Simulated scan of single mutants.
Amino acid sequence: MSAPRLGFVAQTHTGAVEYDDLVAAGATEGFDFVELYMDGATERRALDPERIETLHERHGLDLAVHLPFVDLDLGSPRPLVREASRRELEACLDAAAEMGAEKAVLHADTDATPPEFGRESVLPHALESIERLDAYADDAGVEVCVENLPGRLFSTYDFDVLTAETDASLTLDTGHARVDGLDEAEMADALREFDDRISHVHVNDSRVPEDEHVPVGSGTIDFERAFRPVRDGDWDGTLSVEVFTFDFDYVATSRRKLEAWL
């Protein structure tokens, strides 16, 4: 297997940093791709797909996207809500394809929760939405990767459900996995067990079992152990540093530490 490509999630949603500057910095640092967060200041209506594609070609970087999620509901028991959410995400996938994106990270979630709605009533709707979006993305030439969300509809423990009921690829978020209670050996086991379905990994550290997204190496996750399957050549997807910071130095440091462990 070939070595995994390394990228980073661009924290552009608040408008505090410019996407062009991040792409240039990523190229200088030696990243292979950028994962564009398509929300807030960089949601699809604010983007010029042709300009984004040209920008990436100029700097020699590939592109992935993180689809919006905060106000969308793919598991709602209300058909019109689900349909509107899917249509918005389809429009985002169209834009992603126009920009030349290879992968699209998806939060397949719902705000329909107990006591009004139980898991059994929303799960089929979310799975149907995933299947429809995956098929739509496939036609557009983009790979949908469903992310594990701790304490939500699809946590790290639901990878078996996602692989059994859908054809979509998966995103493993290391910080989310830790919140779900997985240790480094169990993260490695997940990479081995679902090696043909986990296509993308969000790499972020934490000091405690909370969703901190601190720079890689500044927390307590033993990535050398967690990524043993990567080092052994048993997994060759894409790794994306997802650090909640506007200071690119921390992103660059995360890449260097990650590369050393790999």
Rank of each mutant, 00 (worst) to 15 (best):
104 A>P: 10
105 V>P: 09
106 L>T: 05
107 H>Y: 05
108 A>N: 10
110 T>L: 00
110 T>V: 04
110 T>N: 06
111 D>N: 14
111 D>M: 15
112 A>D: 13
114 P>V: 07
114 P>L: 08
114 P>W: 00
115 P>F: 09
115 P>Y: 00
115 P>R: 00
118 G>K: 13
119 R>Q: 15
120 E>G: 05
123 L>G: 07
124 P>G: 08
124 P>Y: 04
124 P>V: 02
125 H>N: 14
125 H>C: 11
126 A>L: 11
126 A>W: 12
126 A>C: 09
127 L>N: 06
128 E>H: 12
130 I>Q: 07
130 I>H: 02
131 E>T: 15
131 E>P: 02
131 E>Y: 07
131 E>K: 04
131 E>A: 15
133 L>S: 06
134 D>Y: 06
134 D>C: 03
135 A>P: 11
135 A>L: 00
136 Y>S: 07
136 Y>T: 04
136 Y>G: 10
137 A>T: 12
138 D>F: 03
139 D>I: 04
139 D>Q: 15
140 A>H: 15
141 G>Q: 04
141 G>N: 07
142 V>W: 09
143 E>W: 09
143 E>F: 05
143 E>G: 11
145 C>P: 03
147 E>H: 06
147 E>M: 02
147 E>V: 11
148 N>C: 10
148 N>W: 00
148 N>M: 08
149 L>D: 10
149 L>W: 05
151 G>F: 11
153 L>D: 02
153 L>K: 10
154 F>I: 04
154 F>H: 04
157 Y>C: 13
159 F>G: 00
160 D>W: 13
160 D>G: 06
160 D>L: 09
160 D>T: 13
161 V>R: 11
161 V>H: 05
162 L>V: 01
162 L>R: 01
164 A>P: 13
164 A>H: 14
165 E>Q: 09
166 T>S: 07
167 D>R: 04
167 D>V: 09
170 L>D: 06
170 L>V: 01
172 L>M: 07
172 L>D: 00
174 T>R: 08
175 G>K: 11
175 G>Q: 00
176 H>G: 13
176 H>K: 13
178 R>C: 05
179 V>Y: 04
180 D>F: 06
181 G>K: 02
182 L>D: 12
182 L>H: 08
182 L>V: 09
184 E>K: 01
187 M>E: 01
187 M>R: 10
190 A>N: 09
190 A>P: 11
190 A>M: 14
191 L>S: 07
191 L>F: 08
194 F>D: 03
194 F>E: 14
194 F>L: 10
195 D>Q: 14
196 D>E: 15
196 D>A: 15
198 I>D: 01
198 I>A: 06
199 S>V: 12
199 S>Y: 12
200 H>T: 03
200 H>E: 08
201 V>A: 05
203 V>G: 01
204 N>L: 04
204 N>S: 14
206 S>D: 13
207 R>C: 06
208 V>T: 15
212 E>F: 00
213 H>G: 05
213 H>E: 06
214 V>G: 03
216 V>T: 06
216 V>S: 03
217 G>N: 02
218 S>K: 11
219 G>C: 02
221 I>R: 10
221 I>F: 08
221 I>E: 08
222 D>V: 11
223 F>T: 05
224 E>L: 13
224 E>H: 12
225 R>A: 13
225 R>S: 13
225 R>I: 09
225 R>G: 14
226 A>P: 01
